[in-house]
Computed example of a mutant assay.
Amino acid sequence: MVKLAGKEVGEIGYGLMGLTWRANPPSQEQSFKAMRAAIAHGANAWNGGELYGSPERNSLHLLNEYFTKYPEDADKVVLSIKGGIIPGQMVPDGSEKNVRRSIDECLKVLDGKKVLDLFECARLDPKTPLETTIGTIAEYVKAGKIGGISLSEVNAQSIRRASKVHKISAVEVEFSLWATDILENGIAQTCAELDIPIIAYSPLGRGFLTGQIKSFDDIPDTAFIKHLPRFQPDVFDENLKLVKEVEQLAVKKGCTPAQIALAWVRAHSGRGGLPIIIPIPGATTEDRINENMTKVTLSKDDMAAIDEILKRTTIVGGRYNDAAMAFCDL
């Protein structure tokens, strides 16, 4: 049994970012179909953000609309929301004042339609002591206004520091076949020691591991990933080698590359001294949800083959640019 914030969740969750944070978001009808499909498949660990869109239209607004139409789903979903930034900017502000503003705004927009099970600051604020930020969120937990505290893109030391202030219910970090850092930098080990589940965002490498992106030109000009180092023309073909190897394995297994990628993440969950790991692939269509939720089991031989692929494949470029990466190791 997999639990998050004391509530049972599926082995695979659902990332809501793409439903509101893109140049041309999907329609409400399309979004609702995807969200309902996630529920139907048991993908009830939902992850959204105050920053996923504008202050006027983000995950919280869509969630309000969804739970207004489907109030029966509210108790089924375990909801985690990222906030703690300056409104309308991608700048962290972990001060007591802004954290209170952020949580209060999230609760206001949800309007009682759904409990806020977890709240996390999208990034730590280097100008504010972590203890101040976590302590402020903890006041809302103790008051019963939110269910628990999660952390996002922090290092192992910060996880330990935060845990001394208040129980940490989850740590959200990037983890996939082309972002294996947490297995070597102490994050996974620390979470295992402290019995903290990991929420693995971008388990499909921001769509790269699906095999749908064959060239730099396949990426829409409005897409966020077009500006990330790993997708640039000078390294694209080198990084595509991993995808091609995964595609070959998928053919042998009779499944899709995305299903291989998700199976690999799930295979690490709770095994070999690792913590529970819940991948949260994002999807904007019902069909993609159905694909992601079709679970494939990797054998020992499959895992060994993937280990060999990873050993001989070098991923070139950072997960974000240098300025953004500086906020991922606080």
Rank of each mutant, 00 (worst) to 15 (best):
R312I: 07
G186V: 05
R22A: 01
A323H: 13
F224V: 08
I213M: 09
R100H: 10
A170S: 15
L298K: 10
N292I: 09
R22D: 05
D75E: 15
I309E: 06
G144K: 11
L110M: 11
E247C: 10
S102E: 10
G94K: 08
G10L: 06
A156H: 05
I85A: 12
D111R: 11
V316N: 02
D322W: 01
K295G: 00
R160N: 02
L330F: 14
V2F: 15
D237T: 10
A188T: 04
A38S: 10
K33C: 00
M17I: 07
I168S: 06
Q232N: 04
N64A: 10
A170H: 06
D73F: 00
A326I: 07
A263P: 11
N239G: 00
P87L: 11
K69A: 15
I103Y: 09
K3Q: 14
S269R: 09
G18K: 03
R100C: 07
I168T: 08
N98Q: 14
L242V: 04
D104R: 10
A122D: 02
P279D: 03
Q28H: 13
R36T: 14
S27K: 05
T136A: 02
R206H: 12
I103P: 11
A5D: 10
E56H: 13
Q248S: 14
R160P: 01
T313L: 01
I137F: 00
D307Q: 14
N64F: 12
V171N: 09
D322P: 01
V316W: 03
A138I: 07
P25F: 00
I149H: 05
L228N: 05
L63S: 07
K241Y: 01
V99K: 01
P233V: 09
L116Y: 06
G205H: 07
